[in-house]
Design a binder for these strands. Structure first.
Length: 561
RNA sequence: UGGCCUAUGGUGUAAUUGGUAACACAGCUGGUUUUGGUCCAGUCGUUCUAGGUUCGAGUCCUAGUAGGCCAACCA
């Protein structure tokens, strides 16, 4: 779809309106501001696509800014992971910024605020300050330290910076309005004392600025025109503007904060705290576990950046609460993978088939199309022999005519090979079918053009030659939670809904061409789904992740019966 | 019992700013097919409620209702 025809989301409408009102297009600038205290998830992808999408749309720069004002939680590991994820999604930031780069400027401005009587040092405990905060319906009460002299405030604040006090002994507060209906305006804390080494400034500082004081001023320093954040910051806007009022120069761009609803997704959680819990408590193997809704998890699972971007684009952005169904994300991976993934054959639950009329010891190589959606993908050779594996669920001794697969006395086409007929089967002592004896029609070879090869047989199966097949570990994933909204239950913990069967590891047989597969390579196992080669894979032991299954109409028909 | 925000099919978003409710997904019916995939066609709505303004309301006004957010020295 062309950009011009695409409808605008409400943020784009705001930008368009600003442009109409005379805001110079060349001064448009955006930013994506993660806190480096965890890995990015699919919800962040929406925000990344929003901000960087805006940048692309208007030819405006987009900064990657780390909101690193809390050394207690933030780490370099997260900075690196975040950068990798944004790059992987395919976006290029203009400048890599850190709120910590602005600590000195922020400090200087804080001094200015003290000098004009708009900030003061409070020496109460956090409990006392909280009590005086009041409630939504009652005004707060002023701190006894609210009217300290400028001199005393300056001296105390400098002492805080110089490490003369213990943690919690003093804080710097903005002097706003203790009676405001917006609790955030009741003299918010600007600085606290924290003797923690920061991942970038190390121990240069022992006072750290709070989010509200930092964020808007950082936007202003970077001359960000539109500062987009999630809805829970809506109430912060008033403070954001108040802080900006104290420092803004009329000749410079004054950043504008606007809020959009964060994305929620069915059958998962997107809260860094909860994701961290899943990792720490061992419910998953790490932040990049393919079951995780993190960008790194999706990447390892086999998702493509394109599919995530398309997905983000189609779900759009708005202000109302939402729960996006995972099937929409799955649709987008399938759509992309269908076009680019080479087709191969892999049998997940092998059942041996012996072609009794195929000469023993003989083998031949069949030609197979790599991707019917992409002619340029070409062809490859597949070994065929007397003993094969097919999928267990593709054979039944008896079945009705809706079953387009192999049954005793019935015929089926082996993909890229011959038409075979099942004559008999053998079972183990428990009654499980362990082998099917078939006869093949030598004249029915695919592509040979013979009358027999042109016969229409209802049902085509994938298969591998037993002698040539490679064994592989295949990891099948299911949703991590059994409930659609695991963290939306007031009386239950989201961990109560963990799906015990979210990972199933099986050993499968795949066609020999896969010996050349490289880590991350994506394939369609025909009739089974999309898979990629996991980093755990070694040349002697292939490991595949199932990214997503194919749409399965047959499974639906069975469900109904 | 204060303030702020939101309400459009099962889900997520649109609606040229007051002019025929549209798109995608999911579901359901069929068709094509050497993947029960892909592809193609069809089908699925009291725009939260009640009033009001207007020739005309998803859009504006009023009053309700429902949901979310707000009292961390977190972001």
């Amino acid at each position: 779809m062309s950009e011009a025809l695409k409808s605008l989301n409400f943020i784009e409408h705001i930008v368009e309106e600003d442009l109409r009102n005379g805001f110079p297009k060349e001064k448009l600038r955006f930013r994506f501001p993660p806190e480096p205290n965890g890995y990015l998830h699919i919800g962040h992808a929406s925000s990344i696509c929003l901000n960087f999408g805006l940048g692309l749309r208007y030819g405006a720069p987009v900064n990657l800014r780390f909101d690193d004002t809390n050394p207690a939680k933030e780490e370099q590991e997260y900075v690196d992971a975040i950068k990798e994820d944004v790059e992987w999604l395919g976006y290029e930031w203009d400048t890599e910024c850190f709120a910590s780069d602005y600590f000195q400027q922020l400090y200087d401005w804080a001094i200015d605020l003290i000098k004009v009587g708009k900030a003061y040092v409070d020496s109460q405990t956090s409990e006392e300050i909280a009590e005086q905060k009041g409630t939504p319906t009652e005004a707060g009460t002023p701190s006894p330290f609210r009217n300290r002299s400028v001199e005393e405030n300056l001296q105390l604040f400098q002492g805080m910076k110089e490490g003369k006090f213990k943690e919690g002994e003093h804080v710097l507060r903005a002097k706003v309005d203790m009676a405001s209906s917006n609790m955030l305006m009741r003299d918010p804390i600007m600085y606290r004392i924290l003797y923690r080494a920061h991942h970038r400034t190390n121990t240069d500082w022992c006072i750290y600025p709070m989010y509200d004081w930092t964020h808007g001023e950082s936007d202003y320093i970077e001359q960000v025109s539109h500062s987009l954040c999630t809805l829970e910051f809506a109430m912060h806007r008033e403070l954001y503007d108040w802080f900006l009022d104290q420092v803004v120069d009329k000749d410079l761009v004054r950043p504008k904060q606007r809020e959009f609803a964060r994305r929620n997704f069915s059958h998962t959680v997107v809260s860094k705290r909860k994701l961290l819990q899943l990792v720490d408590q061992g419910f998953v193997k790490g932040w990049d576990d393919p079951r995780m809704p993190t960008i790194s998890g999706l990447r390892r699972r086999g998702y493509t950046p394109e599919s995530i971007r398309n997905f983000a684009d189609i779900i759009g952005i708005a202000k109302r609460d939402n729960v996006v169904d995972v099937s929409l994300l799955e649709f987008h991976v399938r759509e992309h993978l269908n076009k680019i993934a080479p087709r191969v054959m892999g049998v997940l639950n092998p059942l041996k088939v012996v072609l009794t009329n195929y000469p023993e010891g003989e083998e031949e190589w069949l030609e197979a199309e790599n991707n019917p959606e992409d002619e340029a993908a070409g062809y490859r050779q597949l070994p065929f022999s007397r003993e094969l594996y097919i999928e267990q669920e593709d054979f039944k001794e008896e079945a009705n005519r809706k079953f387009f697969r192999l049954k005793l006395g019935g015929e089926v086409r082996l993909k890229n090979g011959y038409i075979i007929k099942a004559d008999s089967c053998t079972k183990d002592t428990d009654g499980n079918i362990i082998e099917v004896q078939c006869t093949y029609d030598p004249k029915s070879k695919s592509g040979s053009g013979t009358e027999e090869s042109l016969r229409k047989v209802k049902g085509t199966l994938h298969w591998v030659s037993a002698k040539h097949a490679l064994s592989a570990e295949v990891r099948l994933y299911d949703r991590l939670f059994t409930d659609e909204t695991p963290d939306a239950h007031k009386d239950k913990n989201f961990l109560d809904f963990i799906n015990p069967d979210s990972l199933q590891i099986i050993s499968a047989f795949v066609e020999p061409s896969l010996a050349d597969a490289k880590i991350g390579d994506r394939f369609q196992f025909q009739r089974m789904g999309y898979f990629n080669l996991d980093p755990d894979s070694k040349s002697e032991k292939l490991v595949f992740n199932r990214t997503v299954g194919l749409r399965d109409t047959w499974a639906k028909i069975q469900e109904k019966n």
